[in-house]
């Protein structure tokens, strides 16, 4: 049976992990490879690297990092953050990333989704959607959550699926950072609207939260802080889920 996936997210700036990491026994918490290896050892199913490097000139640092990750890490990984062109995506995939994700550029130019899907295949293309409830509908935000776009996230999810997205990485801006649980109504609405896998993101604080997301049909759930701060190890989380009857990869 296909397992529900647990995904760890790492924010990268100029080739280093940023955001507080409080791991013990890690020589250098800023080294993405060391952290990724630790997650792999604990049983993570996938890793997402979000590049928040502001300047385009420093992109080469990311490509070098992707090459190193591809050589050292034996679980699939996704790279994204500020990607605008098919050319950049080609380079990232060529450097060894399994998948890429697009967010702002896809909203600005939806045809980019089909262009990219043609080049790298739908299975390797994730569309990240950041959404926030505006009283009437879940509204799509771009530019790292700074810009409201007036688009209904449910409609947008259907459109990206039609255009060739292979997966949706759905982040709720209402729950992100709260550690009070994933946005279940939003996640449920998107899962029911599309056939492609949906990754729930934003708000994970405890193992129950993952259970709730899988119960309503999310294929995967992503978290950062819960793992970074060592609140729960991936293994503890998976053991909990297995006890509650969720099919996870535990070995």
């Amino acid at each position: 049976m296909l397992a529900k996936r647990i995904i760890a997210a790492l924010d990268i700036k100029e080739g280093r992990v940023v955001k507080g990491i409080k791991f013990q026994n890690i020589r250098d918490a800023g080294d993405p490879i060391e952290l990724a290896k630790r997650y792999e050892e604990e049983g993570i199913d996938e890793i997402v690297f979000l590049d928040i490097t502001a300047s385009y000139e420093k992109r080469q640092i990311l490509l070098d990092l992707v090459k190193r990750i591809a050589e050292e890490i034996y679980v699939p990984f996704t790279v994204g953050g500020g990607i605008k062109s098919v050319e950049e995506i080609r380079e990232i995939i060529k450097s060894g990333a399994d998948k890429v994700f697009l967010n702002t550029a896809a909203v600005d130019n939806p045809t980019l989704i089909s262009e990219v899907a043609k080049v790298v295949g739908s299975a390797n293309l994730v569309i990240a959607i950041d959404a926030k409830w505006n009283g009437k509908f879940w509204e799509v935000y771009t530019h790292g959550g700074r810009k409201a776009r007036g688009i209904d996230a449910v409609e947008w999810a259907k459109e990206v699926e039609c255009l060739g997205a292979g997966e949706i990485l759905l982040t709720s801006m209402d729950t992100d950072g709260t550690q009070e649980g994933f946005d279940i109504p939003l996640t449920k609405a998107i899962v029911e609207a599309v056939d492609i896998p949906v990754i729930a993101s934003g708000g994970a604080g405890s193992p129950e939260h993952f259970y709730d997301a899988f119960e309503i049909g999310a294929s995967a759930a992503l978290a950062a802080s819960i793992f970074h701060y060592g609140k729960y190890t991936v293994r503890e989380l998976k053991e909990y889920l297995a006890r509650r009857g969720v099919n996870v990869r535990l070995e």
């Binding site: 049976m1 397992a3 996936r5 199913d45 292979g166 056939d195 492609i196 896998p197 294929s219």
Partner: peptide, 10 residues
């Protein structure tokens, strides 16, 4: 079934 088949399977 949902296509592509992505993820860890037995």
């Amino acid at each position: 079934v949902r296509v592509p088949h992505i993820g860890w399977n037995q």
